[in-house]
Amino acid sequence: MSEKALDRFDWLILEAVQENGRLSLADLSDRVGLSKTPCQMRLKRLEREGYITGYHARLNTRKVRQNYVVFIEVKLESTSRRHLDDFNRVVKKNDAIQSCHMLAGGFDYLLKVRCRNMEEYRSILTDFINDLPGVRQTSSFPVMEEVKRISSVNLKNNFHYKD
C-alpha cells in the first residue's frame, strides 16, 4: 500500500497532536477545520502509516530524580560492521542511555545518559559503557544547565497555504 501525500489538513493534525497529544477528537477537529469523522480517519491513517509513532507525557526530570545528564563521546576500536552491530545491540538494552547517535568525525558515537547523580553516572560509565563491545575510549561532558529541551519537530516549513 503506497502512502498518500500529506495535505494541509494532515500537516495541521500532526502539528496539533505533537503540541498536545491529549486533544479530544472534537477539539482536534475544531482546530484543524474538519468534522470529526474525516479528522478521525486522517488521524488513524497518520498513525497507521507511521507519521505518528506514539503519544507521551513529558515528565519533570527533577521531580522524578533523573535530572543529571552527561553526554559521552565514544570511540570504538574498529568501525567494522560487526563492531557497530554489537555496540548498537547492547546499547539499546540500557535505559539510562537516553539517546545514541552514530557520527562521522573524531569519535564514533555520542550518547546522552540521564540518571540521578554523579555516583550513579560513574557506575553506568564504569560498569556498563566502558564494557560495551569494542569501546576504546570515552570522554564525558556533564551538563551544568539545560537551556532548552524540546521533543517536537518543526513542521512549519513542510506545508504552505494561505489562512
Score class of each variant (00 low, 15 high):
S123V: 00
R8Y: 07
S24V: 12
D131A: 09
K112T: 15
L125S: 06
V91D: 00
D127H: 15
R62E: 00
L43Y: 09
R45Y: 07
E15F: 00
F141T: 08
I97P: 04
S123L: 06
N158K: 14
K75W: 11
F159A: 13
W11R: 05
I129Q: 10
V153P: 08
Y161D: 13
S2Y: 05
R42K: 12
K4D: 09
V74D: 04
K44S: 13
D85G: 10
L84T: 03
R45P: 08
N130A: 03
M102L: 09
E145H: 02
N157P: 12
K156N: 13
Q18R: 02
E49R: 10
L34A: 04
L23D: 06
D30I: 06
Q40C: 01
L111M: 01
P133I: 05
S80F: 12
E145G: 08
A96K: 15
F107D: 04
S80K: 14
D163R: 15
E49L: 04
L43G: 08
K112D: 08
L12G: 02
G50D: 07
K36L: 02
V69I: 14
S140M: 00
N94I: 02
E15K: 14
A57H: 02
S29Q: 01
L125V: 06
R149H: 13
P133E: 02
D163Y: 02
F9W: 00
F71S: 05
N130T: 10
L28K: 10
E73M: 13
V70C: 07
L103T: 15
L84W: 06
S29M: 03
L111G: 07
K75H: 01
F9T: 12
K63H: 08
R48T: 09
G50P: 14
K75L: 12
E73R: 13
F128V: 11
E119K: 10
N117C: 03
L155E: 15
S35G: 14
A16D: 01
S152W: 01
E145R: 13
M41L: 08
I124A: 08
L103K: 14
V70N: 08
Y55F: 10
L132I: 11
P133T: 10
E19K: 15
E15P: 01
C100V: 02
K148V: 08
L84H: 05
